[in-house]
Design a binder for these strands. Structure first.
Lengths: 204, 204
DNA sequence: TAGATTTTTAACTAAAAAGTTAAATTTATT
DNA sequence: AATAAATTTAACTTTTTAGTTAAAAATCTA
């Protein structure tokens, strides 16, 4: 009967926990709030997951899965590096648009407890892809198709341009004094803006 | 006798509180830890600041002062925009190098309670400077001295490139599998890398 | 329907932390 | 020395929260 554990309840708990943990962080989250959010009670929460830490780690690992993007499709295509970068920028900004709280969550929790990052090491598959990505950069730099840069810094630049404005959203919103919808539009524009910016920087 | 309040004790408390709050966040910080860190006890802490929230706000406002950079010297010089950008990049990366935990702290706390950002609005002086900065950008774009970009996005890009890699430090460290000192060197290199990158992107 | 599983109810405990206080002690001031 | 201010000590209360439990009720399953 182990298999027929009602997954929909476990799923409800996980969804609720994800929502609350992402919003309040590990320290700020309350088990009662998670239970209420899931439409159940604390006793049942204890019945499924033994502890807060246990529940958190389950959530955290799930989120890591999502934030390390799947490079495969992009890297394995035969496109020139500039097109791949543009594709990556579009995909990644789409991802953070749809999951705007995830980057802040990751940064906060990893900073508070860097040990958690060890999970990410199991994703060696993606790091291999990233290296392929870097190799192609170097090759095209040598051939003169794009400007020469340290590929490590180039990758940092690309990711910085994609993610940071979403992380700093409340700060930007206050400084620019604009409303939520307008900021969303501004951030959406970044798919084109960042693509063009990178294109200009890389032109030989 | 109100004036002769021993400021050095108040200062010790503020220093300790800054350290603990930056490291643990508002939720994670413990008053006992702050007291111990300051070399005093909780009762004295209560004698100087009435509550945790009170102490936190004092610290938070102090930190906001630091993170909004003083544009005056840079903006008011008669240099071309590219030199000003380079100057800004160097100064800002130096700042985050010396205060590596501040960006994460700000982002975490502002995200958890966006109301806090209202303090920043008192810094209208710097926003005026930023607008001057943007105007000069536009002027030089029109004259064709630098490539045309939406100045809002250009400013976002500059700040993203400066700050993000410092924010994502533990993630980068894990992924690249390098030790602390080497990462510090890598991040220091960014003063030159980011400057050059922006220079290439802006060349007409 | 009988038995197993899931879920609720309604407590409870234990621990941690913030906030408070009064009295004693030390230190500075005059 | 006398007074005022700063600081410590050592307790205390209150609040919050995680974790636990037992028994009843509801639901599912064979």
């Amino acid at each position: 009967m182990a298999q027929s554990l009602d997954l929909s309840t476990e799923q409800k708990i996980l969804e609720a926990a994800k929502k609350v943990f992402i919003c309040k962080g590990l320290d700020g989250a309350r088990l009662d709030e998670i239970a209420t959010e899931a439409g159940i009670n604390k006793a049942l929460l204890h019945y499924y997951f033994r502890s807060k830490e246990n529940l958190f780690e389950t959530i955290f690992d799930q989120i890591v899965e999502k934030i390390v993007p799947d490079f495969t499709a992009i890297v394995e295509s035969k496109k020139p590096i500039e097109e791949k970068i543009e594709l990556f920028v579009h995909r990644y900004i789409d991802f953070v648009s749809e999951n705007p709280q995830i980057p802040v969550f990751m940064i906060t929790e990893v900073n508070r407890n860097p040990e958690r990052m060890k999970v990410i090491l199991s994703h060696s598959h993606n790091f291999a892809k990233m290296q392929q990505f870097a190799f192609q950069m170097i090759t095209e730099m040598q051939v003169g198709r794009i400007k020469s840069f340290n590929p490590l810094h180039l990758i940092l630049n690309i990711i910085s341009l994609c993610i940071f404005p979403f992380i700093a959203k409340p700060v930007i919103q206050t400084i620019l004094q604009i409303k939520d919808d307008d900021l969303t539009i501004l951030l959406q524009q970044r798919k084109e803006e960042v693509s063009r910016f990178l294109h200009e920087a890389l032109r030989p």
